[in-house]
Computed example of a mutant assay.
Amino acid sequence: MAIKQLLKRTSGWLYLNSPVGRHQLHGAGVILMLHRVLANDRAADLPHRNELCVGPKAFEHLLTWLKKNFDCVPLMEILQPGAIRTGRPKIALTFDDGWRDNALNAFPLLKKHQVPASIFLSTDYIGSRQRFWWESLGETLWRSHGEKARAHLIECLQRLGLPLPVLLDDLDVQRRSLALLHFLQTLKTLPPGELSRLTDQCPDESLPQALDWHQVRALEASGLIRFGPHGASHSILTGLDDQRLDEELSRSRNALLNGCNRPLPVYCYPNGNHDERVREHVADHDFPFALGTVAGIYRGISDPLALPRIGISQRTARNPELLSWRIYRGARP
């Protein structure tokens, strides 16, 4: 695996610094997808956090690398017609969900390096103590809230016919964390109401998980950050009937109109899930653009309601040459 990673990093570096790579990326735009920046890198290294979280050192390393190789621009500079023309390839940072650590840990580094970003809010969570199920269930099962809380949640899961994998009691931290990651991924198929009830069985945390509207307005006032909707309740849009889908789209859109001065005309699909019906409803709610999660680069000819993004994990932030490899894969004809 180490040799494979080394080959990818080397190939990525060569691609970005070769005439062929520079030609393919000329006038292109890359949209990155992040979620959280934790307070320390060791916490972000664990597999069950690695995909959604980066640590501050890794994030700063990534920002430094990005500024060296790209023009870091606001999202709309990539999406607006005629924006992608000449010069170095452009890259834009997006954050999903609206985690509180976007303000506490990510923004100071974005400000230090003067890198703009867009944050897509699951608006029901903003300014409330409502919790994201992945974080609450995952950290409770990881014993972050103690053994008693973990045992209670395990009982609730067993009553639903969802016993934990044996490896979740493995003595090896990495194997245990990887088993938790895989288990959490299986829970994505549960109905939103079931996930909410399970989350209610987890201990309350001292701070809300999400931003509040005061933080949103303060970040927007900085001039570096703009906001868009990422659903209201973070429900998977493809699983909603037409009425609930329209309610979800309207509620998130109205929350942004009331809470921000310049909300983005861009929708961000929760979990990246969308189909033709969802895209039609998003367009009917006056969104000319929408972000998915399929990897690729943007040349202005993609479906504007299914825009590609490249995800950033802790592993990628530590080794940005792996990002250049993914850009190379996405840039191929």
Results as ranks from 00 to 15, higher is better:
residue 78 I to L: 14
residue 136 S to M: 15
residue 71 D to V: 03
residue 154 I to N: 01
residue 117 A to N: 05
residue 43 A to T: 10
residue 309 R to S: 10
residue 217 R to T: 06
residue 59 F to T: 02
residue 6 L to P: 00
residue 263 P to W: 06
residue 138 G to F: 09
residue 192 P to H: 14
residue 34 L to R: 01
residue 240 L to T: 14
residue 54 V to W: 00
residue 207 L to G: 05
residue 266 V to F: 06
residue 141 L to R: 14
residue 158 Q to G: 07
residue 81 P to R: 15
residue 194 E to G: 01
residue 107 F to I: 01
residue 188 K to F: 08
residue 276 E to P: 00
residue 191 P to K: 11
residue 273 N to Y: 09
residue 173 V to Y: 04
residue 22 R to K: 15
residue 190 L to R: 02
residue 104 L to R: 15
residue 107 F to W: 12
residue 159 R to M: 09
residue 196 S to R: 10
residue 313 S to P: 02
residue 263 P to S: 08
residue 135 E to A: 13
residue 92 A to C: 02
residue 201 Q to R: 06
residue 318 R to P: 00
residue 143 R to P: 00
residue 234 H to R: 09
residue 101 D to S: 07
residue 49 R to A: 10
residue 306 A to P: 00
residue 193 G to S: 11
residue 270 P to E: 10
residue 203 P to M: 13
residue 237 L to M: 15
residue 200 D to Y: 03
residue 81 P to A: 15
residue 128 S to K: 05
residue 295 A to M: 04
residue 316 T to I: 15
residue 332 R to N: 12
residue 117 A to G: 09
residue 209 Q to R: 06
residue 247 E to Y: 01
residue 144 S to P: 00
residue 240 L to I: 15
residue 136 S to H: 09
residue 99 W to C: 04
residue 170 D to H: 12
residue 81 P to D: 14
residue 185 Q to E: 13
residue 239 G to K: 11
residue 266 V to I: 10
residue 273 N to M: 08
residue 65 W to V: 08
residue 153 L to N: 06
residue 82 G to K: 12
residue 316 T to G: 00
residue 216 V to Y: 07
residue 222 S to R: 02
residue 181 L to R: 11
residue 205 E to N: 06
residue 201 Q to N: 11
residue 140 T to H: 08
residue 25 L to N: 11
residue 201 Q to T: 01
residue 111 K to T: 05
residue 95 F to E: 03
residue 182 H to E: 12
residue 275 D to F: 11
